[in-house]
Amino acid sequence: MSEINTFRPAGLGYRIFNINKTYLPMITTIIVFLIMYSFACLSHPMFFSLRVFVNFLISNSFMGIIAMGMTFVIISGGIDLSVGSMVGFISIFSAYLITNLEIHPLSAILICLLFGAAFGYFQGFLIDRFGFAPFICTLAGLFFLRGSAYVVSLESIAINHPTVDAITAFAIPLSQKISLPFTALVYLIVFLIMLILAGFSTFGRNVYAIGDNENSAILMGIPVSSTKRKIYMLSGICSSLGGIVYALYTFSGYALAGSGLELDVIAAVVIGGTMLTGGIGFPVGTFVGVLIMGVIQTFITFQGNLSSWWTKIMIGSLLFVFILLQNIFSKTAHK
């Protein structure tokens, strides 16, 4: 941006905001989560149970997996709108491979992941090589994948296979009645991998550098082109994995699955404290952001007299508050 930088002596406010600039959004997220969670627990005593908490992980697992990939894309200053359609396409495609073509589920999963990686890489290639706006390029991806999903099958396809049953039956028992099923496990594993990738890898550092200032990153000799392609490839892998989890979770493939999911995912990432201007954000924040979405949905279910559209309004309002906070933070930090 073309802001005029003038030297100012570091006042208290400047120092406070500058020190916490990177962590402040995430800390806000965690505080908001704690407030909302305790409010929900106070109004419904049953809310405070391990079962409900595990349910947050289960019912939002595919969204969380996608949000992890999206976190990297947004940290790098981009956006990926194709994730929702990817879920729809992969869910119907994997079901088609398993049920209609009778391919072994494990190879079907591998094919789907490879497809997701290739598609993501191609989007990254278009964005990087030809300078397409990420928003426009992935919008085309959104259309393309959704259309392709309909071409595979308009009807939903059921998945019946002993291997799939074996995979989905796998669970780690937490207590006598509650166990951590495979969907939640996949989510947690992806979360761990992303934590390592973001915090302790060259790739992660490059992503932060690109998001902070792409031009400086280029001049510093960071491989910006290849990193950008890898970022979208990572998002593609995450969203196809989300699609697979969705298909296995519901034992079926459905072309309409995940419509509008991209907005929920972006909302979760933003609520999780990732700056939309790029450069700042953490997988931990996204994890909490997904939990917040879970609390809202579960609270509305618990309340009973609130209708589903309140979810949208609540998420919209939270999104607004966080975007405004980000806006104020970034302006304070610049001055």
């Binding site: 390029c137 085309a140 259309f143 259309g147």
Partner: peptide, 15 residues
């Protein structure tokens, strides 16, 4: 539903 694929191709072409 094919229209969506067509739209995607049009977007890429225009870009």
């Amino acid at each position: 539903e094919i229209t969506q694929i067509m739209k995607a191709l049009v977007v890429v072409l225009v870009s």
